Amino acid sequence: MDKNRSEGMKNQVKGTAKEVVGKVTGNTTKEVAGKAQKTAGKVQSAVGKANDDARKGR
């Protein structure tokens, strides 16, 4: 598994946590930061998947 996939998943989890904390506390800055980190994690995971597929010759 490509390192980007695992790092991407980690960023998605952290982003989701930040987003929830932001919603619960009413902190829109933290909520938006969480959404951004979650999206960045999704992109990073997709890059890792593409790298894995390229290595496998797909």
Rank of each mutant, 00 (worst) to 15 (best):
K49E: 05
V32A: 12
T16V: 08
T39A: 15
V43R: 06
N51Q: 15
K10I: 03
T29K: 15
T29R: 12
M9V: 11
R5M: 12
V43A: 14
T28D: 13
D53Q: 14
N11W: 05
E19I: 02
D53M: 15
T29W: 05
Q44R: 09
V20S: 09
K56A: 15
K18I: 02
K23Q: 12
K38F: 02
D53A: 15
K3T: 13
Q44N: 10
K3P: 04
T16Y: 08
S6D: 09
G57M: 05
T28Y: 07
T28G: 06
N4Q: 13
S45E: 05
D52V: 03
G8R: 00
K3A: 14
E31C: 07
G15I: 00
G41A: 04
A40M: 06
V43G: 05
G26I: 01
M1T: 11
K23F: 09
G57K: 09
V21I: 11
V47L: 05
R58D: 12
A17L: 08
T28I: 09
S6Y: 09
T29Y: 09
A33C: 06
T16H: 10
G48V: 00
D52A: 11
G8V: 00
K14V: 07
E7H: 12
G8E: 00
A46V: 02
G57Q: 06
G57S: 14
V20Q: 09
E7D: 14
K3V: 10
S45A: 14
G8W: 01
V20G: 06
G57W: 02
D52Q: 11
D53I: 08
N27Y: 03
V47F: 01
D53F: 12
Q12K: 13
M1N: 12
G48K: 01
K10G: 06
N4L: 04
G26A: 09
A17E: 10
A46D: 09
V32Y: 07
V43C: 04
K49S: 10
A50R: 03
E7M: 11
E7K: 15
D52P: 00
S6V: 13
K14T: 07
N27Q: 05
K23C: 05
K35N: 09
A17V: 07
Q37V: 03
N51P: 02
T29D: 08
T29I: 08
K49W: 00
K38Q: 15
K3N: 13
R55H: 13
K14L: 12
G34M: 01
T39H: 09
S6Q: 12
Q37E: 15
V43E: 03
R5W: 02
T16Q: 11
A54Q: 14
N4P: 01
K10A: 15
D52F: 02
G48C: 03
G41R: 00
G41M: 00
G41D: 00
Q12V: 10
R58E: 14
K49L: 07
D52I: 01
M9F: 13
K14Q: 15
G15C: 04
K10E: 14
M1A: 12
V24F: 08
N11I: 01
A40I: 01
A17I: 09
R5F: 05
K38C: 03
G26R: 04
G22Q: 03
K23V: 05
V24I: 15
E31I: 02
V13W: 03
G8N: 02
